[in-house]
Design a protein around this nucleic acid. Structure first.
Lengths: 191, 191
DNA sequence: AATCTGACCAAAATAACGTTTCGGTCATTT
DNA sequence: AAATGACCGAAACGTTATTTTGGTCAGATT
């Protein structure tokens, strides 16, 4: 039996949030899973929301790490943006917690979960915005508004990855990279 | 007092759908507004859904007309796509009926209204797809998948017009035209 | 005879209400 | 001093009672 009760609670809560989402996770359940009295949770976390917040913050940090591990300094700007964006969106599709929260936002619309997903999206935007700013400094792309460009770029990616497969066959990772290059980087005008 | 009872009913229903949406419009209300017995409605229209359908079909036709009136044969491809897309999305923002249905879809999720909004979106996509196909034939743009390109293009426009103004100041029509040119036509790569 | 009407019906939406569940507290135990 | 779980008020839920609404049709109107 572990003695780090705080970590036990975090582990139990992560498991429960991932399995049942925010709303369907009860504090009693977390307490039982963590082999801890309910009151004990409240000695480490102010309330359910703060417990959730800490877990989500950890998850977002993991996502940032994954995004940065995907890039290579020898790559071009568009290759790296593609890789890190793809990594982050894939992260969202492959981790129980993000999948569950995505479902919960869509099906129930829990406000706290909406806030969290907004936070995830903002993090993605911020990372891409940074890459764009550096690319402009280095003269790798045209001088454009970094925030707006990041916004458009992420929208394009989500359209290609998630929205398109609601109507037609999903696109492969390579196809998406090529389309990204065509639509955003080179443009559809003739050379 | 008019004798064209069918038109009276259409007028009354259009007014009511525009004011209250599909769900909150009752057949009694339409009958009263049209100065007609409720049963009379059912001599012209099979049911509430068909009445709604005819009104929406008319609305979509009006939108297509507006889109085609915006284009000029002397313009470039991108100018005309910008103009007709902008016209259609503006149409959606300026007509009581589309505004109300947009709200109803978002807030209540009435299935019939969802179908209709899907129909509107498909119409927009189809129009843009046609323009792209012609532009490819004429050699005005690169050879790309017309359906996918139309899809991406419409997503970009909706992002620039609707989604962006949820976070920052709205963009002017000219700014949007320039950004469309930058992001989709020319690309952000250096020349 | 042909057209129109509104009272009427079943089904669906909504409201009302009793019951259960849950986040958070705190007196008691360890 | 730290941990616990019985306890509390509030919010969520299920159920039943009531109202509303789309659609019909027997009879009124022209």
């Amino acid at each position: 039996m572990s003695t780090d009760r705080r970590q036990d609670i975090l582990d139990a809560a992560t498991k429960s949030f991932s399995l049942f989402g925010y709303k369907a996770t009860t504090m009693n359940q977390v307490a039982k899973l963590a082999n801890v009295g309910k009151g004990t949770i409240y000695t480490f976390f102010k309330n359910k929301e703060e417990l959730f917040d800490e877990i989500v913050t950890n998850m977002i940090r993991d996502m940032e790490v994954a995004a940065n591990q995907a890039i290579r300094s020898s790559n071009t700007f568009q290759e790296n943006v593609h890789l890190s964006l793809y990594e982050m969106l894939e992260f969202r599709m492959e981790h129980q917690l993000t999948i569950k929260l995505f479902q919960e936002e869509r099906d129930i619309g829990t406000p706290i979960v909406q806030d969290v997903m907004q936070k995830v999206e903002n993090t993605i935007l911020q990372i891409i915005k940074n890459k764009i700013e550096r690319a402009i400094e280095k003269g790798e792309i045209k001088d454009c508004d970094p925030e707006l460009t990041a916004f458009v770029l992420v929208k394009l990616y989500i359209a290609l990855i998630f929205d398109w497969e609601k109507r037609r066959e999903p696109l492969t990772k390579e196809t998406i990279a090529n389309l990204f290059d065509l639509y955003m980087i080179k443009g559809i005008a003739l050379e």
